[in-house]
Computed example of a mutant assay.
Amino acid sequence: MARIRAVQARVMGQVQGVAYRAWTRGTAETLGLRGWVRNEPNGSVSALLIGPQDKIDDMIARMWDGPGAASVRDVERHPETVVDGFEPFEIHR
Protein backbone atom coordinates (compact mmCIF):
# COMPACT_ATOMS: atom_id res chain seq x y z
CA MET A 1 0.00 0.00 0.00
CA ALA A 2 1.30 3.48 -0.92
CA ARG A 3 2.25 5.80 1.91
CA ILE A 4 -0.03 8.84 2.27
CA ARG A 5 1.62 12.22 1.80
CA ALA A 6 0.50 15.83 1.83
CA VAL A 7 1.75 18.65 -0.39
CA GLN A 8 0.80 22.31 -0.47
CA ALA A 9 0.80 23.61 -4.05
CA ARG A 10 0.63 27.21 -5.21
CA VAL A 11 -0.20 27.92 -8.86
CA MET A 12 0.65 31.32 -10.35
CA GLY A 13 -0.37 32.95 -13.61
CA GLN A 14 -3.84 33.52 -15.08
CA VAL A 15 -5.56 31.00 -12.80
CA GLN A 16 -8.48 32.89 -11.28
CA GLY A 17 -11.71 33.42 -13.19
CA VAL A 18 -10.95 30.48 -15.50
CA ALA A 19 -12.56 27.61 -13.50
CA TYR A 20 -9.18 26.51 -12.13
CA ARG A 21 -10.61 25.55 -8.72
CA ALA A 22 -13.38 23.42 -10.24
CA TRP A 23 -10.89 21.79 -12.60
CA THR A 24 -8.55 21.09 -9.67
CA ARG A 25 -11.30 19.47 -7.63
CA GLY A 26 -12.45 17.30 -10.54
CA THR A 27 -8.92 16.21 -11.42
CA ALA A 28 -8.02 15.52 -7.79
CA GLU A 29 -11.17 13.44 -7.33
CA THR A 30 -10.36 11.45 -10.47
CA LEU A 31 -6.92 10.70 -9.01
CA GLY A 32 -8.40 9.76 -5.63
CA LEU A 33 -6.80 12.67 -3.76
CA ARG A 34 -8.25 14.45 -0.76
CA GLY A 35 -7.71 18.06 0.34
CA TRP A 36 -8.86 21.50 -0.78
CA VAL A 37 -8.29 24.30 -3.28
CA ARG A 38 -8.80 28.07 -2.90
CA ASN A 39 -8.14 31.42 -4.57
CA GLU A 40 -5.57 33.64 -2.89
CA PRO A 41 -5.75 37.45 -2.65
CA ASN A 42 -2.57 37.79 -4.77
CA GLY A 43 -4.24 36.08 -7.78
CA SER A 44 -2.71 32.65 -7.25
CA VAL A 45 -4.50 29.40 -6.43
CA SER A 46 -3.45 27.22 -3.47
CA ALA A 47 -4.25 23.55 -2.96
CA LEU A 48 -3.60 20.96 -0.29
CA LEU A 49 -3.15 17.57 -1.94
CA ILE A 50 -3.37 14.45 0.24
CA GLY A 51 -2.77 10.96 -1.07
CA PRO A 52 -0.13 8.58 -2.42
CA GLN A 53 3.03 10.33 -3.67
CA ASP A 54 2.64 9.09 -7.25
CA LYS A 55 -0.89 10.54 -7.45
CA ILE A 56 0.28 13.86 -6.00
CA ASP A 57 3.13 13.97 -8.53
CA ASP A 58 0.61 13.29 -11.33
CA MET A 59 -1.66 16.07 -10.05
CA ILE A 60 1.22 18.58 -9.84
CA ALA A 61 2.21 17.75 -13.44
CA ARG A 62 -1.39 18.28 -14.59
CA MET A 63 -1.62 21.60 -12.70
CA TRP A 64 0.88 23.09 -15.17
CA ASP A 65 -1.83 22.80 -17.85
CA GLY A 66 -5.05 23.29 -15.86
CA PRO A 67 -8.28 24.11 -17.66
CA GLY A 68 -8.17 25.47 -21.21
CA ALA A 69 -8.45 29.16 -20.31
CA ALA A 70 -5.67 29.06 -17.70
CA SER A 71 -2.16 30.29 -18.34
CA VAL A 72 0.13 28.83 -15.67
CA ARG A 73 3.43 30.60 -15.02
CA ASP A 74 4.67 28.53 -12.06
CA VAL A 75 3.65 25.71 -9.71
CA GLU A 76 5.37 25.66 -6.33
CA ARG A 77 5.14 22.63 -4.04
CA HIS A 78 5.92 22.33 -0.36
CA PRO A 79 5.63 19.17 1.76
CA GLU A 80 3.08 19.32 4.58
CA THR A 81 2.37 17.19 7.61
CA VAL A 82 -0.16 14.49 6.79
CA VAL A 83 -3.49 15.41 8.32
CA ASP A 84 -6.75 13.56 8.80
CA GLY A 85 -10.27 14.84 8.36
CA PHE A 86 -10.48 15.55 4.63
CA GLU A 87 -12.90 13.15 3.00
CA PRO A 88 -14.01 14.80 -0.26
CA PHE A 89 -11.88 17.28 -2.16
CA GLU A 90 -13.28 20.71 -1.24
CA ILE A 91 -13.33 24.13 -2.86
CA HIS A 92 -12.74 26.81 -0.21
CA ARG A 93 -14.04 30.26 -0.88
Rank of each mutant, 00 (worst) to 15 (best):
A2I: 14
A2V: 15
R3Q: 10
R3T: 11
I4K: 02
I4N: 01
I4V: 11
R5P: 06
V7D: 05
V7Q: 12
Q8C: 06
Q8S: 13
R10Q: 05
M12Q: 15
Q14G: 00
V15H: 05
Q16A: 02
V18Y: 04
V18P: 05
A19R: 07
A19W: 09
Y20A: 03
R21K: 02
R21A: 01
A22Q: 14
A22I: 11
W23R: 00
G26H: 14
A28L: 03
A28D: 04
E29W: 08
T30P: 05
G32H: 08
L33D: 11
R34K: 15
G35C: 09
N39G: 06
G43Y: 08
G43C: 09
V45L: 12
V45E: 10
S46P: 05
A47E: 03
Q53G: 11
D54E: 12
D54T: 09
K55M: 13
D57R: 14
M59D: 01
M59I: 02
M59K: 01
R62Q: 15
G66W: 05
P67W: 03
G68T: 07
A70V: 00
A70D: 02
A70Q: 01
A70T: 01
R73S: 05
V75I: 00
V75P: 02
V75L: 02
E76D: 13
E76K: 13
R77C: 10
R77F: 07
R77Q: 15
R77K: 15
R77Y: 09
P79S: 12
T81I: 13
V82N: 10
D84H: 12
G85Y: 00
P88F: 11
R93K: 14
R93F: 15
